[in-house]
Design a protein around this nucleic acid. Structure first.
Length: 574
DNA sequence: GAGTGGAGCGCC
DNA sequence: AAAGGGCGCTCCACTC
C-alpha cells in the first residue's frame, strides 16, 4: 500500500496529511489531516508486518526532513519513495543535472510555474549536549511549495509524474531499482546518523597523548609539534619558521640551496636533505592535531558516539557525502577508538575489489568475469600481467581512472589486448565525455553536463589566434572530461550496487534484535550488534552482496565477495 | 574581519 | 613528454 504523507507547511510542526494512493499514483482514499504526522506514520507502520502485502510505502517529499524526527520518536519506517532524491535522479537523466529537486520545484516545473531554488541545507551545528534534543516547535518548511498549494495534491501529482518519467527511461526496471535503493539508502543514512558510531573519547585521548604529547592548556602547539618545528628550523639554519606556510618553507629551503617542486609529500620524499624528514614528520603530526585532535573529539564525540550527517546522492557519482567531522575520512590510526559497547561487536564488511568486479559485470567481459571467481582478482590475473599482481592492479585501476603513461603503460597495453570488452566499455565512456555527451551508470544515474569551462574551451578553440596553444588546452580539458566520464560509469555503478546491498541488509537486520547499521563508506559497512548475533549478521552480509549483484546485473558469473570480520575494535577489522 | 581559492592530506 | 576518478577538511594567502 502506498501512502502519501507530508507535513502541513502552514501549521505546527507535527501537523500533516496522509492519503492512500494506488500503484499507478492515483488517489485511492480520502485525504486526511492528522494532528501528529509522526505518530500517525508510527501507527500505520505498526499496523502490519513489514513483509505483509499491505504494508505502507511512504511517498513523501524528502526523507532527510522526516526520518530524523520519526527516529527520535522511535518510529522505524520500512520503505519509502523519496520525491526529492527521485527528482534529482530524473532531472539528471533528462540532462538537467543540478536543477532544483524539492517537491515545490518539481511541482512548479510540472505546472510551468517559476521554479524556486532548493533551500540551502543548514550548516551542521556541532551536536548539543543532549543528542536527543527536541526540535523547535515550528520547523522551517523546506518543501518549496507556494503557500496556497495543496501539499498532499502536490505530492500525488509529482509522484505520478515521476512514475511516468521513470517509465520513459531506456531501462525502466533498472531505474525503479535505483529509485528504491536510493530511497532506502536515505532511510539507512538517517538511522546511522541517529545511532552514531561508537567512539571512545578516552581511547582517542590516549592515541593523541602518545603521538602528540599532553594536551596543551593554552592553545599552543602540542609538545611533539613544537619539537618538530624547532628541529626543522635548526636544520634549515633559521631562527623561526611556520611549517604550515608554503612561502616560508619554500624560501628557507631555497636559502640552503634546495629547490622544492612542491610541498607535496610525494615530491618531498624524492629530495635528499636532512630537513625533509623533519618537515614530513611535522606535517603528519599537524594533520592529526588539526583534523582529529582534541578539538575534533570534544566537538563531535558526544555521549560515546560520533554523529556525522550523511547526504545520500551528495556526490555526482551517487556516493554519499558526509558533513561534520570528516566522517568518510576517518584516519586509520584513529579507528582504534571505535570500540563496540560491552557485550557487542562490530561486524565490519567491505566489498573486495569492487570496481573491477563492477567493470567485469557491466562489460560482460568473460576473462575478467572468470577472474572474479577468486577473492583476489589481482592475484588471479597476475598470470596475464607477466606474473605480477602489482602490474595487474595497475592495469585495471589505470584503465578505470584513465591513466595512460608512467609505469601503467605496459599493463594497460596488456589490459587492452586481454580484456577487449572491458576496455571498449571504458574507452566508449571516455569518448562520449570528450565529445561533451552524457554517460550513465548501469541503473541510469547520469553524469552532469560539461562545465562552462569545458564549453568555452572547446568554443574558444575555433576563434583563438594562438591555435596551437588553444588546441592543446582544449584537448586537455576534453581529455579531463573523458577521464571523468570513464570513471563515472564505474564509480556510479559501484555506488548503486553498494546502495542495493545496504537496502537489503537494512531489511534483513531487522530479524536480529538490536542490530544497528552504524557506518557506511562507499564499499564498506559496519554493523553494531550484540555478540550472539555476530555470526548471523556476517552471514546476512554475504547473502545480501550476492543478491545485490543479481538485482543490479541479473544472473551472471561475476562474484561480489565481501571480506567480513567480527571485531570489538574497528581498528582490528583490516 | 569575513569570504574565497589553492595547496595539501587522507579516505574510498 | 606526460597525461588517475570522487570527496571533506584545514591551513595559508589573498581580496574586499
Amino acid at each position: 500500500m502506498q501512502i502519501a504523507a507530508t507535513y502541513d507547511p502552514e501549521g505546527f510542526k507535527d501537523r500533516g496529511f496522509v492519503q492512500a494512493i494506488s500503484e499507478e499514483g492515483d488517489a485511492a482514499g480520502q485525504p486526511r489531516a492528522v494532528a501528529d504526522l509522526e505518530a500517525e506514520i508510527g501507527t500505520l507502520e505498526a499496523a502490519s508486518a513489514p513483509d505483509a502485502p499491505d504494508h505502507p510505502r511512504w511517498i513523501w517529499p524528502a526523507t532527510a526532513d522526516l526520518a530524523p524526527a520519526l527516529l527520535r520518536r522511535g518510529v522505524r519506517v520500512d520503505r519509502c519513495h523519496d520525491l526529492a532524491l527521485t527528482e534529482a535522479l530524473l532531472v539528471a537523466y533528462e540532462g538537467r543535472c543540478g536543477a532544483p529537486r524539492s517537491l515545490g520545484a518539481a511541482w512548479a516545473r510540472l505546472h510551468g510555474l517559476p521554479v524556486p531554488p532548493d533551500r540551502a541545507e543548514g550548516t551542521l551545528e556541532a551536536p548539543a549536549d543532549n543528542p536527543t534534543t527536541q526540535p523547535a516547535l515550528f520547523e522551517p518548511d523546506r518543501s518549496g511549495l507556494p503557500p496556497d498549494a495543496d501539499p498532499l495534491r502536490a505530492v500525488r501529482e509529482v509522484h505520478a509524474e515521476q512514475l511516468r518519467r521513470i517509465a520513459a527511461t531506456e531501462h525502466p526496471g533498472r531505474f525503479r531499482l535505483l529509485v528504491a535503493a536510493e530511497s532506502a539508502a536515505a532511510l539507512a543514512a538517517a538511522e546511522m546518523a541517529h545511532h552514531g558510531l561508537p567512539w571512545r573519547a578516552d581511547v582517542h585521548g590516549e592515541i593523541l597523548a602518545e603521538i602528540l604529547g599532553p594536551r596543551p592548556v593554552d592553545g599552543s602547539p602540542p609538545r611533539a609539534m613544537a619539537a618538530a618545528t624547532a628541529e626543522l628550523a635548526a636544520a634549515l639554519g633559521v631562527r623561526a619558521l611556520n611549517p604550515d606556510s608554503a612561502p616560508q618553507v619554500t624560501k628557507a629551503f631555497a636559502d640552503v640551496g634546495v629547490k622544492l617542486p612542491s610541498l607535496r609529500r610525494w615530491d618531498l620524499e624524492k629530495i635528499d636533505h636532512p630537513a625533509i624528514p623533519l618537515l614530513l614528520k611535522y606535517k603528519e603530526l599537524s594533520r592529526l592535531y588539526s583534523f582529529n585532535g582534541w578539538v575534533w573529539r570534544d566537538t563531535w564525540v558526544v555521549a560515546g558516539r560520533f554523529r556525522p550527517e550523511y547526504t545520500v546522492g551528495g556526490v555526482v557519482t551517487g556516493r554519499w557525502a558526509a558533513r561534520g567531522g570528516g566522517a568518510l575520512q576517518i584516519a586509520r590510526r584513529l579507528r582504534k577508538a571505535v570500540i563496540a559497547d560491552p557485550g557487542w561487536v562490530f561486524v565490519a564488511a567491505d566489498a573486495a575489489q569492487l570496481e573491477p568486479r563492477i567493470l567485469a559485470a557491466m562489460a560482460q567481459d568473460p576473462g575478467m568475469a572468470e577472474a572474479t571467481q577468486s577473492d583476489d582478482m589481482y592475484a588471479a590475473l597476475a598470470g596475464v600481467f607477466e606474473g605480477s599482481r602489482d602490474q595487474a592492479k595497475l592495469g585495471l585501476l589505470g584503465a578505470m581512472y584513465g591513466q595512460t603513461g608512467g609505469g601503467a603503460a605496459a599493463p594497460l597495453a596488456l589490459m587492452r589486448r586481454r580484456f577487449p570488452k572491458a576496455t571498449a566499455l571504458l574507452d566508449e565512456a571516455a569518448r562520449e565525455g570528450e565529445r561533451g555527451r552524457l554517460v550513465r551508470s548501469h541503473l541510469g544515474r547520469t553524469c552532469p553536463p560539461p562545465s562552462e569551462r569545458w564549453q568555452s574551451a572547446i568554443a574558444g578553440d575555433a576563434e583563438a589566434d594562438a591555435a596551437d596553444d588553444s588546441n592543446r588546452r582544449s584537448g586537455q580539458v576534453a581529455r579531463a572530461r573523458g577521464r571523468f566520464t570513464r570513471n563515472f560509469v564505474i564509480q556510479a555503478t559501484a555506488a548503486e550496487w553498494a546502495e542495493v546491498l545496504l537496502a537489503l541488509l537494512r531489511q534483513r537486520l531487522r530479524r536480529l534484535d538490536g542490530a544497528q547499521l552504524v557506518f557506511f563508506q562507499h564499499d564498506e559497512v559496519l554493523v553494531h550488534v550484540p555478540k550472539e548475533h555476530a555470526a548471523a549478521a556476517a552471514g546476512m552480509i554475504g547473502e545480501c552482496a550476492a543478491l545485490a549483484g543479481r538485482l543490479v546485473f541479473g544472473p551472471g558469473p561475476v562474484r561480489f565477495p565481501m571480506s567480513v570480520h567480527s571485531v570489538e575494535c574497528y581498528g582490528d577489522a583490516k
